[in-house]
């Protein structure tokens, strides 16, 4: 799957806060797409983001293949009818247009994941979200990264042990209960150890964060993200302007 790789690309050099802002703005603009021209512009911008991260669209498509396959079924589901003509084209096309907004959003978020180390995301969270909530979220995200592989391994070991005793012949809810209980037990033991370790190391509200620096290019990327987020509103206003002026022309005022 897509994960961070060190590099020297333009995207690697950007501040994580600028990249997060761009991602959010891009998603808003992509999901607001209402015309093929707008959609084409979104795909072109996604291509620029991928180029900035030197990430191949084929790699992104391969990593999100399950997602794309599931999305591919949506237009078929939308078009199927329970009576003649059995398949209606209009709803299927509407669904096809809706799901075609998704790949560029996935591509841009893939570029973020590929070019941003978790400690930078953590620092971005702690610097962006004010107060203690930001501190806990930042530290917590770093810890989830560390504990996730261990807990997955705990569960897989429990499942392997269950199946080694012919557990797969038992009803699924019994298997689920056994796995959930084993997972919980291990989780609680790990939580107790983590509590002790945090207390022993004087876990404090004062963080030691990696340095982040907002440079001119970061402001530019942030501005593009903001413009993208506002683009749907601006487009809607642009569409209503002629109507307003027509009202002014045909309805005498005063």
């Amino acid at each position: 799957m897509l994960s961070y790789r060190p590099g020297e690309t333009v995207a690697h050099g950007l501040d994580p806060r600028a990249k997060l802002g761009f991602q959010a703005g891009f998603a808003v603009a992509a999901l607001a797409a209402g015309s093929l021209r707008w959609l084409a512009a979104i795909y072109a911008l996604a291509a620029v983001a991928l180029a900035a991260a030197r990430l191949s669209p084929v790699t992104v498509a391969r990593d999100y293949r399950v997602v794309l396959a599931v999305l591919g079924v949506a237009p078929l589901l939308a078009g199927v009818a329970l009576g003649p003509p059995w398949f209606r084209v209009d709803p299927a096309l509407r669904s096809l247009f809706a799901v075609s907004r998704v790949p560029p959003v996935l591509a841009v978020s893939g570029a973020y994941v590929r070019t941003t180390p978790v400690r930078d995301t953590r620092a971005a969270l702690q610097r962006t979200i004010p107060g203690r909530a930001g501190q806990l979220l930042g530290v917590g995200v770093g810890m989830v990264f560390r504990f996730f592989p261990l807990v997955v391994e705990d569960l897989r070991t429990a499942r392997a042990a269950l199946w080694a005793r012919a557990g797969q012949r038992r009803p699924p809810w019994v298997q689920a209960r056994v796995l959930a209980v084993r997972g919980l037990n291990r989780t609680m033991v790990r939580a107790d150890r983590l509590t002790l370790a945090l207390r022993a190391r004087c876990f404090a509200w004062n963080p030691t964060l990696p340095a982040l620096r907002y440079r001119a290019r970061d402001y530019l990327v942030t501005a593009v993200g903001l413009a993208l987020a506002l683009a749907p509103v601006a487009a809607a206003a642009w569409r209503t302007l002629p109507a307003v002026s027509a009202v002014g022309r045909f309805i005498p005022i005063g």
Binding site: Y64, V67, L106, G110, Y112
Partner: peptide, 23 residues
Amino acid sequence: LAGVAGAPVFSNGNAGLGYVLVG
């Protein structure tokens, strides 16, 4: 947030803000 930051924590090992929003 761990998924948004890039940990493969969503189903089928997916990650990223895009997956949360639209995946």
